[in-house]
C-alpha cells in the first residue's frame, strides 16, 4: 500500500492543475456569459466556424 504515499500527492497535484486551468479560463472571460451560448448551438447553414 506504500504506493499511496506517491499516488495521493500526485492526484492532488493533478487536481490543482485542473483548478489552475479553470481559474485561467475564468479570468480570460470564458464564463462571463453563461446564457447566450445555449442559444448559439443552432444549425449554421454555411458551416462557417466562429473563432472563440
Amino acid at each position: 500500500m506504500s504506493v499511496l504515499y506517491v499516488m495521493v500527492p500526485v492526484a492532488l497535484v493533478i487536481a490543482a492543475g485542473a483548478v489552475v486551468a479553470f481559474i485561467r479560463a475564468a479570468r480570460a472571460g470564458q464564463f462571463d456569459d453563461l446564457e447566450t451560448p445555449a442559444y448559439r448551438m443552432l444549425p449554421d447553414d454555411d458551416g462557417a466556424r466562429r473563432k472563440g
Binding site: 483548478v19 464564463f31 462571463d32
Partner: peptide, 25 residues
C-alpha cells in the same frame, strides 16, 4: 463588476475542488 463576478466564480470553484478532494480522502 465583471472582475468581481469572476472572482466569485473562482472562489466557488476552488471551494468545490477542495470539498470534492477532501470527500475522496
Amino acid at each position: 463588476r465583471r472582475r468581481e463576478d469572476r472572482r466569485m466564480l473562482v472562489k466557488t470553484a476552488v471551494a468545490g475542488a477542495c470539498a470534492g478532494n477532501i470527500m475522496l480522502l
